[in-house]
Design a binder for these strands. Structure first.
Lengths: 338, 338
DNA sequence: GCCCATCGTCGAAGCGCTTCGACGAACTTC
DNA sequence: GAAGTTCGTCGAAGCGCTTCGACGATGGGC
């Protein structure tokens, strides 16, 4: 492996000049620059990342802390990860992948040993124990999610409360007054994953504001979970005409179940799903849905981290506006039937 | 951030002694070691990764090159990734996540700049352009997959050819003579992803050896793809009594379709799936399946990388034996009906 | 009781880079 | 045309660690 000294010799300049060509931090004559670049290309020189990190206190690496549970929501997590890696590369950064189960210790390890410049975390819980640990780090962090006390830490996410409002407003606008929420699995609520909480609060508030009759129920994965959730919803509220589904895994079995029990979508029951666009469009009925903009969220998280590193201003709480796309799973209830 | 010098002063020893306490490369008296460790703990010292890499030429980081396409096979990819990260941590290594779409350049970038000690790649193609590039790197690499020319590079994977054999042998043993293969999507074959190739060859060979009547067909994702694949199979071979399904995404729509067209599983058509255990068990019918042991493969890949780094012997082609688990989707055909 | 080997520790060199201050040369500015 | 700028480059220090050689102190072998 050639070093910066080899390049310097080949180009007939000093090592510092090579460094300045690379970083652009000082003016270099066009002629010298050309000679240096030629030498770099010819020797196939790549600066040693460790040496660079040591001298400059910058690693050009960010940590991504992902929940590598395999149980739930895998495609969405993957979309976040893809977006983060791609965006990071566009800022000339690489991504170090950590798992959530290393907890606080993992964050401290990579931060204290200066392996990364910044951290991005996903799957935050309401009172996530990692938040206080993050505050103590010298590296900035960006959360994908919105825990209870996030003062001083940048957060990015879909505005799930607004999403719930949007879903109910849409349904109410189509004449639905009795609406059920099929929520995430009880495990998600138990962990107090922030999106579940926020969606539920938004749902309840909007329900009151719009004067709707609503019921909510978590939903275990699998056909059996869906069956029982739906049964509970029906038992709790007669004459449900619409369902809001905030649970990807439940969508398919729910549609199967509705079909099997002779309830047509959208004629007998309308559905608004909260899920990635492609999931909504791969169902037997094209679902009217509110997208989970994983790509945007991941990209913004990285951008925010970069601004933080540059000492630029950032919006500390960035909640993306939900956008509802109408497809084939909602229908206007004729006024006569309301 | 305290440095090794701070620790040395606090413990009343020289920096090199601290280093030897940390690495264990030279004998240190119990007493000194205790003093040093106390100082480390008290100051919260973590060695600077870059400095370490510079001095020792070891980063304790491995690269994982994953296909971050979101289209296909996401859960399996995630299982590999999880296994790799977890295994790497157990060897005190971290994982740098690269995407396949950076191609050769990405590999060279992280290798030449000494960001990683070794590389693990997944989703290899038959004549993968990255292989020659890998050979030129000073870091060892391990492939999850088995490209055509892999001389000198360690490979780990399920033995997909044997898996096909196992599936056919099982079905033949139950009296099935007319069997269809529902393969991966045409895109997978087009890319010549190695597992698809190997499965297909194994299938064809075993079919000949066992003197079976078989037909094979790729299968586009989605209900429509399944419908057309099945139609083509039926058209190509009368009286199919069993299907081998090497396509996770197809499983659910396939079962739906069979049910909708009144073909019972396993009474009218037997199914052997090649997919992760949990997928097989989350279907309306518990499927007899051959597991894709993503966890084992990922773990072995990391272990192999570690052995390579230690200069120990490794098995350069490690194909895991398939294991078929009988569940509810295959039934013996009564001899009278054969 | 002498010679060697081993143990436990230290000091210094060096890994490859960035960055600061310095300095001559070329340009402005009145 | 003297004083001050800016430009382009260099040399040296230093980032925090590992590792090699050295060296006094022990202990074993005979």
């Amino acid at each position: 492996m050639p070093t910066i000294n080899d390049v310097a010799k080949a180009a007939g300049v000093s090592p510092s000049t090579v460094s300045y060509v690379l970083s652009g931090r000082r003016p270099i004559s066009a002629e010298t620059r050309a000679r240096v670049q030629a030498a770099i290309a010819e020797l196939g020189f790549h600066p040693h990342a460790g040496a660079r990190a040591l001298a400059s206190s910058k690693t050009n690496v960010i940590a991504l802390v992902a929940p590598l549970r395999v149980d739930v929501n895998v495609p969405v997590i993957m979309q976040f990860a893809t977006a983060v890696v791609t965006a990071a590369r566009s800022f000339n950064h690489d991504v170090l992948l950590l798992t959530k189960d290393e907890g606080t210790a993992g964050l401290e390890r990579v931060a204290h040993s200066t392996m990364v410049d910044a951290l991005i975390l996903m799957d935050l819980e309401r009172d996530d124990l990692r938040i206080p640990a993050l505050r103590k780090l010298k590296q900035p962090s960006v959360l994908i999610g919105l825990p209870a006390d996030h003062t001083g830490i940048a957060c990015v996410d879909l505005d799930f409360a607004a999403a719930a409002r949007t879903a109910l407003t849409h349904l109410a606008g189509h004449g639905h007054r009795r609406i059920g929420l099929v929520g995430p699995s009880p495990a998600v609520y138990r962990r107090q994953t922030t999106y579940a909480d926020r969606f539920l609060s938004g749902f309840l508030e909007a329900s009151a504001e719009l004067d709707l009759r609503t019921v909510t129920h978590p939903c275990e994965p699998g056909a059996e979970g869906v069956r029982s959730a739906l049964a509970d919803l029906d038992a709790a509220l007669d004459g449900i005409t619409a369902l809001v589904v905030h649970n990807e895994e439940a969508l398919r079995p729910l549609l199967d179940l509705l079909q099997a029990t002779g309830r047509r979508v959208p004629e007998d029951v309308a559905i608004v799903a909260i899920c990635p666009r492609d999931v909504a469009m791969s169902m037997p009925v094209n679902l009217t849905s509110i997208d989970i903009p994983a790509h945007d969220v991941g990209t913004i998280a990285v951008e925010t981290a970069m601004r933080l590193l540059d000492g630029r201003r950032v919006e500390y709480t960035r909640l993306l506006e939900p956008s509802l796309v109408e497809r084939d799973s909602c229908r206007e209830i004729p006024p006569s039937h309301r």
